[in-house]
Simulated assay, not measured.
Amino acid sequence: MTGTVSRAAVLGSPIAHSLSPILHRAAYAELGLRDWRYDAIECDEDGLAGLLGTMGPEWAGLSLTMPLKRAVLPLLDTVSDLAVAVGGANTVVFGDGGARHGENTDVYGIVAALTEAGVSAPRGATILGGGATAASAIAALCELGLGGPGLGEITLVVRDPARAGETLRVAERLGVTVAVVPFDRGFGREPTGRIGTGELVISTLPSGAADHLAGEVAAALPDKGALFDVVYAPWPTPLAAAVLDRGLTVIGGFAMLLHQAVRQVELMTGRSEVPVEAMRAAGEAEITRRAG
Rank of each mutant, 00 (worst) to 15 (best):
V10H: 06
G188A: 08
V230L: 15
Q264W: 04
G47P: 07
V10Y: 07
A241V: 01
P149K: 03
G129Q: 07
T197E: 15
G87C: 08
K224F: 06
A241M: 04
A210P: 11
F187T: 04
A49W: 06
V265R: 03
G188R: 09
P206Y: 05
G165Q: 13
P234C: 12
E277R: 13
V93L: 06
A26Q: 02
V84D: 15
A233S: 12
L257Q: 06
K224G: 15
L68W: 04
H259I: 02
G215S: 14
Q264Y: 02
L156T: 03
L128T: 02
A278T: 00
T249Y: 10
L11Q: 06
R289F: 08
L62Q: 10
R173V: 06
L82W: 01
N90K: 04
D77V: 01
A9R: 12
V274L: 04
S13P: 02
P234F: 06
V180E: 11
G131M: 05
P161F: 04
A179W: 03
P57F: 02
A139K: 13
A209S: 11
S6V: 13
P206W: 09
L258Y: 04
R185N: 01
A135V: 06
V170A: 14
T237S: 15
R100A: 02
T78E: 15
M279P: 10
L31G: 02
V79Y: 05
V262I: 14
R159W: 13
S272G: 05
A282E: 06
P21S: 07
A255N: 11
A240E: 07
V230Q: 10
D39A: 13
A171E: 07
K224V: 11
D77H: 10
